[in-house]
Each structure stands twice: as C-alpha cells, then as structure tokens.
Nucleic acid binder design. Structure first.
Lengths: 231, 231
DNA sequence: CGTCGCGTTGAATCGCGTCAACTTCGGTGG
DNA sequence: CCACCGAAGTTGACGCGATTCAACGCGACG
C-alpha cells in the first residue's frame, strides 16, 4: 500500500483536474498528488490566514467553507462535494481566505500549489482546466448571488435543493433522493435565513407533496414543480 | 495615431494584467492587446451566450454586468471600474455568461483569449497574474455574498459605499468624494433592495452627518463611522 | 414648454426574524 | 441494552424592517 492515489481510477476525475487530459498527462499529474489523511466530522482542514500550500480535491464526504465576521459568527460561503476543488480563492495573496470544516468523514487529495504551477507550464490542457474550474466557481458564485438577492425564502430553499440535486447527479448519484450532510442551521446560514424558516419551509414543501423529508434524508417527488418554485 | 495602445503608459497597469511583468514581458503583452471603440452610455458590450473571444480591460468609465431572470428582469452581479477585467466567468464553456453595459462613456482594451493563452505558456508571470486576478474576483464575489446575507439594508449600503471608496482609492482617485455612475435602481438591484430603500437610507446617512449626497455625487464625511456601520 | 427618466417621501402591508416551549435524534456511559 | 443528556429540529405567537403602492419634485432633452 502506497500513499499515492491514482487519478486514473478516481471516479471523480471527470469533475476534477484530470478532465480532458490524456493518460500520459494524467500520469504526470498523478506524481504530484498525495492522499490526505481522512477527516472526521467537525475536523477543520483549513484555517483562514494560513499560507496556501495545497489545493484539496474532495474524494468522498463533504465540507463547508466559512468566514468569521466581527463577532465571531460563521458566514457559510460554500459546501463542497466529491470532485470539488478547495482553495482557489486564496491564490490572490497566497493565504487561505476561509475556514473549511468536514461535515462528515471525508477523504481528500492534496495538490501542492508549486508543483501544480510548474506542471501547468508543460501541459496546456492542465492550464486550461485550471482556468475552467476557477471560471466555473466564479460563475457559480455570481449565480448564487443573483439567486439570493431578490428571492423569497421559498425560492432560495427550492433553488438550493435543485442545485444540490443536480450536483449529485453530476457525481453519478441519485438526483431524486439524497442526504443533507449539513444541519438546518448551516443551510439557513448559507441562504441568509433563520433555522426556523428552513424548518417551516421543508414542512410546507412536504405538505404540498413536492418533497418527502425524513431527518437528513430528502426525496424530491416533483422535480418540475420544485424547479418552477426556484425560478 | 495607431490603434495600438501601450500597457507601459497605462495608469491602470498595476491593477491589470501587466502587474509584476518586466518591461520586455509587458511589451510582448502589448502586441496582442487592441484598443476597443469607445462605448457610449447604455451601449451593450457583451451579450450573454455569445462566444467568448476577448477579455476586456476597462481603461476609463464604468459598466455593469447582469443576467436576465425568467421574466426578463435584470440581476446586476457586478460593477466594473477602470483596471477591472471582464469576461472571466465565461472561460468555463467559451461563452459569455452575462450582459455587460456601459454606465457612461467608456474606453476599453480588448484581449484575444487565444493569444493570451499562448502567451501565458511563455510567461509564468502572466500565468500567475491571470490566476491571481481570477482568484481575487472569486474572493470578492464570496465576500459580497457574506455581506448581503445576514445584513440589514443599512449595513449593505454602507458596505457598498466603503467598498466603492476603497476601489477608487486603489485607482488613485479620492476615497472621500466620488460619483455614482449607476442609478439608485442599479444599486438597489445589486444589493437586493428596493429603490425606495436606497433613497431613504442615503437621506438618513446624510442626516446623521456621515455623508453628503448631491444627486450622483457622494462625499464621505466620516469614513470611520461608515465603516463601523458596514460591519 | 411638455415629456420622460430618475429620485424622494409617505402610508399601508407582509414576509421573515426573534423569542420561547417543546420534541426528537444521536451519541455516551453505566 | 437501555437511560441519559445535549444537540438538532419543530412549531406557535409576536414584532419589526423592508417592500409595495402611490403621489410628487426635479433636471435633461427634444
């Protein structure tokens, strides 16, 4: 058993850096990537302000990223699922810009920034993919912004669920039924709503027959109507 | 007079791509950059969905970027000032992802994506700067998200003014006194507030002696207290 | 001089947050 | 294995901040 892992066998490869790299190129990428020790629930992977040495790729599990406001309150800015890359917003000044914490047992790959930079000089495909991933994050972030502004609590939650559903689908999981690894409070924080509102809305959507909610398990019964609410 | 411009003489160079490039490297960058025809107020530079051929750098003036929701309503996601680069969120799939419209007479540089990609293979500094600029946008966007969520109308507006003020300062302009090239409606749209609320808040901040507002002209009398409100 | 876009101000309404009480879940130790 | 305890989630009553609707002022421009 080695501490190396192999992008070639990784089910998340199509979402992650090796996307559109040739087998030989992927092999090169492989040489700089290490497996990170597994995280347990509530373990903190990244502390804001630390020097940026690695990007992380999620292999399994999930995490949340947040900043702290003046009074020490969390501001959740992202949830990370398998295939996601973490750390891009720190490239600007070589420091991580947020805290990142595991929501459940989580496996990660560790990608040294410096090696990545050197390697991307050789591989135009990798360079493009780096830009593509960042561009995607940027777009997602700006879309989210538009989705929070100008939208009611119901629209926000519906949109959150629809987005989550499609992210699970991209990862080869069910888009109809999934587990919310974050708490209601996390969801509320992320959407700028109170816990109580989240709870009430979930009950309400269930009463309307759109969802079936059982603790952390959500089943979307009527994707169409839910998507319509998210508009 | 040539259609070429020169990054060497551009006052925005420190904010833009040539940042930290050597004179020779900047010269190379120069060869691929063209001046774009000036835009008049309300001219639309970019239509969402068009193929991405250029990044644009703002030389003077200002613009807003927005998406359209289902009912054709604008969702303003960004204001662009001199030195800003426009178009990054489209790299993911080779299409512009939003509309971009001039708020006043505006001068731009036009940077062909393809040449930029080729050139960045040669110049590690350019590659780094590209990532830095995107990372900065990403960070700004996530910060903004945190600033809208969980904040009152007053906090949002105060934060908007403080951010704008520091952006003007970075550009060598006064941080105390500046002109809002966007309408109140634009500001409200951007912050997720109604026009009326923006108007009321500006009056209120003026009555408290923090600001002096005269149509589009804003003077910040008490930067400290304003920053405190933005918390 | 009239029109149109933009901005301001007032009054009524409502969505969501806050506070509080209670229930359920999940982990821990006896 | 069950009892216990704290964390997480639910539900109801109430209040406030921001939206909405409406009227009006003002400057730019034909």
């Amino acid at each position: 058993m080695t501490s190396h892992i192999h992008c070639q066998n990784c089910s998340m490869a199509t979402l992650c850096l090796p996307y559109q790299l040739s087998p030989e190129q992927t092999e090169k990428l492989d040489t700089i990537i290490q497996r990170h020790r597994p995280l347990q629930k509530r373990d903190v992977l990244i502390h804001s302000g630390e020097p940026l040495k690695f990007l992380y790729a999620v292999r399994s599990g999930s995490l949340k990223s947040y900043t702290l406001d003046g009074q020490g309150g969390e501001q959740i800015i992202d949830f990370h699922l398998p295939g996601d890359l973490i750390g891009f917003d720190g490239l600007i000044d070589g420091q991580y810009r947020s805290y990142t914490q595991a929501l459940e047992t989580t496996m990660l790959c560790e990608i040294p920034i410096q090696s990545l930079d050197q390697l991307s000089a050789e591989l135009p495909g990798l360079r493009k993919q780096l830009l593509r991933v960042m561009s995607g994050e940027l777009h997602a972030s700006k879309t989210l912004l538009g989705n929070l502004n100008h939208h009611t609590a119901q629209q926000r939650l519906a949109n959150f669920l629809v987005t989550l559903s499609s992210r699970f689908q991209q990862r080869g999981l069910s888009s109809r039924e999934f587990r919310l690894s974050m708490t209601r409070a996390d969801i509320g924080n992320y959407l700028g709503l109170s816990v109580e509102t989240i709870s009430r809305l979930l009950t309400q959507l269930q009463q309307q027959g759109l969802l079936t909610v059982q603790n952390k398990l959500v089943a979307i019964n009527e994707p169409e109507r839910l998507r319509a609410l998210a508009a």
